[in-house]
Design a protein around this nucleic acid. Sequence first.
DNA 1: GTAATTTCTAAACCTAACTTGAGCTCAAGA
DNA 2: TCTTGAGCTCAAGTTAGGTTTAGAAATTAC
Lengths: 155, 155
Amino acid sequence: MPSSAGISIGYLAERTGLAVSAIRYYEAQGLVEPWRNAGGQRRFHRADIRRMSFIMIAQQFGFSLPEIRGFLKDLPGGRTPTKEDWARISEGFRTHLDQRIETLVKLRDNLDGCIGCGCLSLPNCKLYNPEDRAAQKGQGPRYLMGDRPEAENGH
Amino acid sequence: MPSSAGISIGYLAERTGLAVSAIRYYEAQGLVEPWRNAGGQRRFHRADIRRMSFIMIAQQFGFSLPEIRGFLKDLPGGRTPTKEDWARISEGFRTHLDQRIETLVKLRDNLDGCIGCGCLSLPNCKLYNPEDRAAQKGQGPRYLMGDRPEAENGH
DNA sequence: GTAATTTCTAAACCTAACTTGAGCTCAAGA
DNA sequence: TCTTGAGCTCAAGTTAGGTTTAGAAATTAC
């Protein structure tokens, strides 16, 4: 229940769909700064509902929590994004998203070019080529992402 | 150096760009089954170079190691994919990829619709909508870019 | 025949984004 | 007032996909 002096962590969780533990984790990561009431319990601004939403949306776009913290800190006064802030920030999202889509489409095109070629071990296969592999981002071994191309010879 | 009786883990690593530790890890995950020489060292088939390449490519398409193990097991005789197998399997890749691209494009469209609307806290915002969020992943670490199939466990 | 390199195992460690548990306190309703 | 539920802290666990480390044994190079 929202009292006049800020909202509880449970209420914030209920309104955003986040787990209570996640909100506490976000606080630990510096994404939100609740104050404490007399009994030591966290109290949040109502605006933090929107702040949490912003975090969740930014996550959908693939931003890490540190990056999101950066967005939130860059806002004058460290406030939760307003309509204008949001418009500005979404340009960045858009670019990020476009890049990711482009990467996947390229990957798909390579796949189409390779279906049935059976060339997985050949140096001219674009899927196998380390240069192309280095271009991808995401989880996976780090040495695929920018390390040694090395002399590859098909066998 | 490849002897006539199979290749060493170091040579396999060199030929694929994988770390030796990664190959041992794949063995532990049941993705490859080397035998041992008299001294207890692993020996691999030459064909495992191709097998490793297959694993790396499948990873690029977002498949988890258990899924990839499934692909490799489904092959008659448990062999490394041939040209024909590869053609068959890539259909699955293609579908998976298409889905991921579609998801991202939808996200982008929603973003375009929302730029400047400042509606982050409103229930009719598609980016904010809990239904849409629920459509992706429940709890645990969220693998946000596209769905990561598999390994969904309750709390 | 040495020396150098590779490989072996097992366990610990790593990152990200959280969740779970233990043990305790605070707040609210009957 | 009692009781239940919500909240607190801190540490440890989880998942995926590995890497690092340490000490010993095998293999290769000279």
